Computed example of a mutant assay.
Amino acid sequence: MAMTSAISIFRFHLPLLAICLASIDAILVAGCYISIFSFGDSIADTGNGIRCNQFDDVGRFPYGETFFHHPTGRYSDGRLIIDFIAQDIGLPLVRPYLAGTDDGEDFTCGANFAVGGATALDKKYFISKGMDVYWTNNSLNIQLESFKQLLPSLCSTDCSNRMNEWLFLVGEIGGNDYNHAFFQGRSVDEIKTFVPDVVSAIGSAIEELIKLGARTMIVPGNFPIGCIAIYLTRFQSDKREDYESETGCIDWLNQFSMYHNRLLLDELGHLRQRHPNATIIYANYYEAAMAIIRSPKEYGFGESPLAACCGGGGPYNFNNSAVCGNGAEVCSSPSSHISWDGIHLTEAAYKVIARGLLGTYTTPPISQSCPKIQRYVLDSDYDNNSASS
């Protein structure tokens, strides 16, 4: 599919009433927030990356086939965690900032600044490490600057009071800082030296948001990268001790993810001490994902939880020569798979993780900042929401 054709199907088909006031009944039921603002990478990107001419494959079928029935710039077959969070709260799906206002809508309900391929650290950091820098120049700092530019149009005066009603999703971010290094052949020992800097960049962004007036933030940790098909393919080993016996994931890579998450938890603890009036919620994406990888059948997934649905063959159905959207074949039932394209997850997996965030996978629990949200979500049906984005 030509790039122009791919972009043409990304136009947002937002119903005329898909504004915050149209969702006021749902918001009152949930008793939560009136807007969501998101920062991150492809895990949360709802259409920014394709507008940066990044990763054209995500602009082709079968991306978006399950819920939207056309590609939207999301790196999945359907909705992402951020989409389910928006639906939890009763808000429209969060619009990508780079969509602008050319479709007649504004960012009253929030904006998504996440960009596929984005890093927590700026490009100059990787250049200083002698790395080949070829990815999008939309680091966390740049995304934050875009938010600052948008802010005056949302609240010309007394932004701090308005921002009390906004929910901020800061991440997942940092994964690409490590992905680029691992795939350029850097050692795990060297990449571990990046982690404090990555965590510091996330902490600085949170500090800046609090200074601007943000009061409630969800900050996700890293996924278990040792269970991701691209890593399993790249780092295949004949040594049994390299793998977790229970899951088949690569143990040393998962240990790396947990190292990042430990440092991030420490940073969030320090931030809570410095800002007791802010609610900083850690979202444990790692354990939420591991729960379904350890017991896939319990959550409705098939017997091969590590293999991609859309891929080019091999033991984990991932092949760099035939990637999803460009030469790969797609499975007949994405909802029975956890992995979508060998890097990102399916809508079905993201849905389970999003539901898990209402249970034991957030610290402090989301229900503390939004007491009615769990009852609201349990009484609602995600799939009755229209594909409005």
Rank of each mutant, 00 (worst) to 15 (best):
S386E: 10
A118D: 11
Y259F: 06
R51M: 04
V377F: 05
I9W: 12
M290K: 15
G31L: 01
L144R: 05
P224T: 01
E298V: 00
R162V: 01
C109R: 01
I280G: 14
Y382M: 01
Q273L: 06
K123L: 03
E207F: 00
G325P: 06
D102L: 08
A308P: 08
A118K: 12
Y33H: 15
Y376N: 12
F37N: 04
A26Y: 13
A26V: 00
L264C: 06
L98P: 08
H275N: 14
A354K: 12
H70M: 02
T279Q: 13
I85V: 10
F84I: 02
Y316R: 11
V133I: 13
M258R: 15
D106E: 04
S304F: 00
V323H: 01
R262G: 07
I7Y: 14
C310M: 03
A18E: 11
T279Y: 05
S333Y: 07
Y33M: 01
A283F: 05
Y63I: 00
G314R: 02
L144T: 12
E298I: 00
G313Y: 08
I9Y: 12
S128K: 14
F107Y: 14
V199H: 06
N261A: 01
G117L: 05
E65Q: 15
I206T: 04
S8A: 11
Y259A: 05
N254F: 04
R262H: 08
P62E: 06
V330G: 07
L140V: 01
F37P: 02
L378R: 13
P334Y: 04
Y376V: 07
T233R: 09
L167F: 11
N138F: 12
A22V: 00
W252R: 03
Y350E: 05
C249Q: 07
I191Y: 04
G78A: 04
C324Y: 06
A30R: 15
P15S: 11
V94T: 14
E241M: 06
L14S: 07
G73F: 14
C52T: 13
D189V: 12
D122T: 12
T363I: 02
Q273Y: 03
S23F: 15
E172M: 09
T66L: 13
C227S: 13
A308N: 10
L209P: 11
P365E: 00
L16K: 14
Q149M: 12
M258Y: 03
I43W: 11
P296Y: 04
H180Q: 07
H270K: 13
I50Q: 14
P305T: 07
G302C: 10
Y361L: 00
Q54W: 05
H275Q: 07
F183C: 03
I206H: 00
T66A: 15
D158M: 09
S160F: 03
C324N: 02
L345G: 00
F126N: 06
D197C: 03
A328H: 07
A181C: 09
N277L: 02
L16N: 09
S367H: 07
M217L: 15
E298W: 01
T136M: 07
F223N: 05
R11H: 09
D383L: 10
W135A: 03
D77F: 04
S42Y: 07
D341F: 08
L306D: 03
D88T: 03
P364T: 00
S333G: 08
S204E: 12
S389W: 15
V115Q: 09
I280T: 08
A26N: 15
D381L: 11
